[in-house]
Design a protein around this nucleic acid. Sequence first.
RNA 1: GCGGGUGUGGCGGAAUGGUAGACGCACCGGACUUAAAAUCCGUUGGGCCCUAGGCCCGUGGGGGUUCAACUCCCCCCACCCGCACCA
Length: 860
Amino acid sequence: MTELPERPAETVAPKYDFAHAEPAWQAAWDKAGCFTAVDVPTGDKPKYYVLEMFPYPSGKIHMGHVRNYTLGDVVARYKRARGFDVLHPMGWDAFGLPAENAARQRKTDPASWTYENIATMRGELKRMGLSLDWSREFATCDPEYYGQQQQLFLDFWAAGLVERKQSAVNWDPVDNTVLANEQVIDGRGWLSGALVERKILSQWFLKITDFAPDLLAGLADLPRWPERVKLMQENWIGRSEGAEVTFPLVGADAGITVYTTRPDTLFGMSFLAIAPEHPVARTLAESNAAVAAFVADCASQGTSEAAIETAEKKGFDTGLKVVNPFNGETFPVWIANFVLMEYGTGAIFGCPCGDQRDLDFARKYNLPVPVVVSPTAGEVPEIGNKALDGDGFIVNSGFLDGMTTKAAKGAAIAKLEELGAGKSVVNWRLRDWGISRQRYWGCPIPVIHCAACGPVAETKLPLVLPKDVSFDKPGNPLDHHPHWKHVTCPKCGGKATRETDTFDTFIDSSWYFARFTAPKSATPTNMAAVNHWLPVDQYVGGIEHAILHLLYARFFTRAMRQTGHLAVGEPFAGLFTQGMVTHESYKDADGNWLYPEEVTKHADGRATTEDGREVTVGRIEKMSKSKRNTVDPGVIIERFGADAARWFVLSDNPPERDVEWTETGAQGAFRFVQRLYRIAETIAGEPKVAMPAVFEGEAKKLRQLTHRSIAAVTEALETFAFNVAVARAYELLGALVGDRPADAALLWARREAIEILARLVSPMIPHVAEAANMLLNPGAALVAMQPWPEPEPALLVKDELTVAVQVNGKLKGTITIAAGTDAAVAVAIAKAAVAGALKGQTIVKEIYVAGRIVNFVVKP
RNA sequence: GCGGGUGUGGCGGAAUGGUAGACGCACCGGACUUAAAAUCCGUUGGGCCCUAGGCCCGUGGGGGUUCAACUCCCCCCACCCGCACCA
């Protein structure tokens, strides 16, 4: 048994000394090896894999991490108590842009910066008392990890899941470097301030679209994922049924093919629009300066979809004409900035009456707006500035007239096929995953470019990043390196160059959960381990990853299965998405952001700086360094303890919602921890009596509350309603304050209650739970190794019921009846109780919902 | 622009279609103390008649379904998140 340090003698009031106790209990768990899992277990316990999204080592942990890892830890500890063999690992998502930025600013190198941050953050996480198996820790920037990742890539390549094609990037023409979307501020490079251009590069892609149908279908097999996340994924994958229609160009042999989900509105065509990157636009630009200028203008928009779709609609009439196969009329071909090259064919036919964007465009350029859809059959509505994009009936459309829009889609496609002008097509919004990044601090792409052989796989893995790089000039240091990229071709032995791009860091996080099952394996995975532990039973992380990370991980799992690296279908069987941690933000009179500790709040609601300058209290928003509204968990843990910090992030708010960090909330959590310990200490000092044969009165009530609490906390933990579990703990503890009872039965019931309470809160505040347990039962096993308490069914049964009595649905009073009383009796008592309200009324109907409510429907 | 979400007292929130506001915070009152802190006890949605007690209103707004709606349906408003090179 662990010896706790003695409480300092000068402390007058008994006080739980978390600063000494918490590290001592952490050492005790370590020594007992409570949290270590084996790669391939031989026992017969059921497995449970709990995983939280691993952190980026940015410097220090933040409150979002505290929340995320506490949530996961509650699950891990609870499942362990329920008899599961739990795997709960931790690692570091260590590649990424911030390390390069730090390297540029601080003249350090990304590797040392990253590993120093990891050391700091590991210490902070350990101080939280998380039940992690630290023996499995790795960072994605460890060559042992990314070398295996390079192997996976080569296997994917051999399996045909990789291809090279062109794609657009944000280009800073001053710094001559590729910019990430977040480095583009209002269309300008964040450092140079230069207007950003779109530039086309040849890049590597993973063929995630090959799996689009399966990624969509697989969502149906994920009952323990939030509906909204599945819905977002479904929309992102974006299966749509429509048609490809080819419009012949007037005076040419060629045509332009568009994809449309609304072939029913083809008679409502007003124009045809193509993306600025469309081959037709590019060809025109070569010989036409005006076209070239317009295309260049569109290229200054940035590459993000939001930027493209919210920009003011702009178009350029190319002078080209196309023919509508349905009515033979000719229409102009425009280049339009809101048409996305990545979706469909990069060309649309414009039907202003049925599509808002087309209508906005038509109004701006005075194009006709033929009306072909009507909400009511047979009528032709007026179109103002609002398109009729819902379902309805087709009008003014020849052979489609009178059909519903739905029926007309089928009829139009059949006609297109008959005319040889188009065909039915299933289209996906999902695009192939571009994985090339022109950066240093990432996993090197293990490919060598040979003039004779083309791209060739690197044979010596891991292909390690060179350390002697310079960040003195913009662009990719790997590309500037004096000799790293100059190699010989592994195939022909001729001169060749290395690929200097690195992988998108999303790749690193797309399979780490698999690597955790056997982190030292000489191959990417150990089949026995990975197939035993996967899928992750409970994954916990931020809602901001609802689409990309989760989709990429689901894709990787499929690609790894296809290449023989694992045998499961889905990576995460259960998913929980937590909300953000927020805080008030503060600004001084000059508009500078202030840290919370720089602000003093006054009783009258005013806020000032220490030297009395006025402070504006801003919105409550996501904690971020730039707004300075952060609270350092390290400071909080030092002041209040790990348990208090954990209790706070679990209290009050449902975990899926945002939580606002408040000082008073933290103090409240601290008080609870202290109070729990104090009451445990009091009860431990009371006489230990034998279990009485009968419990009556207060003692029985307390036992009922204790066992109802077991049931309630258990249910709350099972459903991630941790705030409700916290409330139930407060309730039970509240029943234990007060003086030592004289009654032996009550003494026994009190001791039972506090012992059970310590175990019920142990997944949430494990340190003080151990401390209380030791006080009450010196020499007992660690709470971390004890099974979960079971309620006694007899104590969950209520012997009397409170029933609400309503007249016409309005509450008039309550009655208490013995359990098992039949409906007639209950109604009769209820009637007597509200006799006044029923006087002079005729009872039309009596409703009795057993044990809950009686409702009299009356009329005068 | 597209996609997803949220909205309940002074605040965070609770509530299988069945007593709205559990539990916490804050506030106020009381006990203890030389005092403070800590601790313990108690009150607190709004309005009205008023002292017993009772009545009315109340879950972003407006409709609807139902004996009964925070909960289900329709419309609207406000705010938040994501949009493929931030992680």
